[in-house]
């Protein structure tokens, strides 16, 4: 945004996605992302009564990969950039982060299933692997996360 020519036209528009209704001007309601998180974007632990933080060592490469997935800021650019309005990159980032870590692995399949079901219910489109989401992602969340989500999702389906 810093370098542009005098007289050039800059187009601004609200995030475009069926699941993000416009409130006013550029302001959209991204509450759908919160609802997907409420469906399963967590580890089911209560406050207190957890083991010591160093009780389970986690290999550094795994921890780093989880960190990269966790850097998603939930901005909605992925769904807005996708021609199908899919939220797969967002969902996969959270599913990956938690599936990679031993603390979240236990619920990984169920989590993937619940979050994807919610995503569908809220009117986000299907993923057709165009990669537009990752190209626009301001935090460089990788498409590899979508592959991991698909694996978790399939394994959940097998268990059904």
């Amino acid at each position: 945004m810093r370098k542009f020519k005098d007289g050039e036209t800059i187009t601004v528009e609200p995030w475009r996605s069926r699941a993000f209704p416009v409130i006013k001007d550029l302001m959209v309601d991204r509450g759908a992302y919160d609802k997907i998180m409420q469906a399963g974007g967590f580890v089911s632990v209560n406050t207190g009564g957890v083991p010591d933080a160093n009780a389970i060592p986690i290999p550094k490469p795994v921890a780093d990969e989880a960190m990269d997935a966790a850097s998603c800021i939930g901005c909605g650019a992925c769904a807005a950039a996708c021609k199908n309005g899919s939220a797969m990159l967002f969902v996969s980032a959270k599913v990956s982060q938690l599936a990679l870590l031993p603390q979240g692995k236990i619920e990984a399949a169920a989590r993937a299933k619940a979050m994807v079901a919610k995503m569908d219910e809220l009117g986000f489109g299907n993923c057709t692997n165009t990669g537009a989401c990752a190209a626009e992602c301001p935090k460089s969340v990788s498409l590899a996360n979508i592959a991991r989500l698909n694996r978790e999702f399939l394994s959940a389906k097998f268990k059904d």
Binding site: V45, K60, L101, Q103
Partner: peptide, 22 residues
């Protein structure tokens, strides 16, 4: 100390050393 335990249990990806510890 309880805070760090709690956050790790929630899946907060704190930085780790090569041995896997925080």
């Amino acid at each position: 100390n309880n805070i760090i335990d709690q956050c790790v249990a929630q899946g907060v990806p704190f930085a780790r050393e090569y041995g896997g510890l925080l």
